[in-house]
Amino acid sequence: MEDYNIKTDTAFAIQPDEATDKLKGALLKGIQRSCYVYRVDCGGCNGCEIEIFAAITPIFDAERFGIKVVSSPRHADVLVYTGAVTRSMRVPALRAYHAAPNPKVCVAYGACGCSGGIFHDLYCVWGGADKILPIDMYIPGCPPTPLATVHGFAVALGLLKQKMQMVHHVQGEDEHSQLLFPEVPLELRVEVERESRRMAGYWAGRNIAHTFLGLIKERDSKEAIADVDAYLKGQDDPRLTEIVNRLEEIFLSKNA
């Protein structure tokens, strides 16, 4: 993709030679466990670091797979790059790379490490570790949860299979999007959604409105209200009750 949003400009990245690639293949195939990880923070917000440390606690326990975090790149098999790679962290990142013995696996960790994340178009960042280094594994997430971290390392070491695949959809001949609540009058739907979003905030408001509209559909107002009240009783949430009661008022005023 040529556009600036999904930059594939890795012209400045280090290219490992063939012999190193071969060795790396042996590392990935032959060892599969007991790898030492060194973590390089290239200007991240520390969210990723917190999740990496959560991943090595007893709850998630990455050491089950022999993954151990070490404090020197000289001991490392795997280098984990977090952060959007700021200008001033480029040289330290490269030094860590050169300090690690071959063969080594480089992992881009988090949205920033994979592509620069929300900082991708800042003047002071390189926008992802793959702009300066040969990256073998991408672990997206902002930050990746400890479970995503464990999964990422397991995939990198060949213990699990990669789940993601490229998808390319082309619009079919007779492809139409469905209206969301075709049986609810448009005017009522718009008003319910607006009021719900006004009271509950955008994302929650939308969800509440859609649950409400799903419950009322086009049925008789008494029957619908009984259904909504049963739902509210099940939820037992005063804030939700307040909002849904207001939506009920709108529904009844439109149906009167």
Partner: peptide
């Protein structure tokens, strides 16, 4: 239209950036 929603899949790790891409062409 409800065409996009956040699911509960977090297993996104991938060897190449192409596998992290979804594209759709419309007329």
């Amino acid at each position: 239209t409800g065409a996009i929603h956040l699911g509960d899949d977090f297993e996104l790790a991938s060897f190449s950036r192409d596998d992290l891409t979804v594209r759709a062409d419309f007329r």
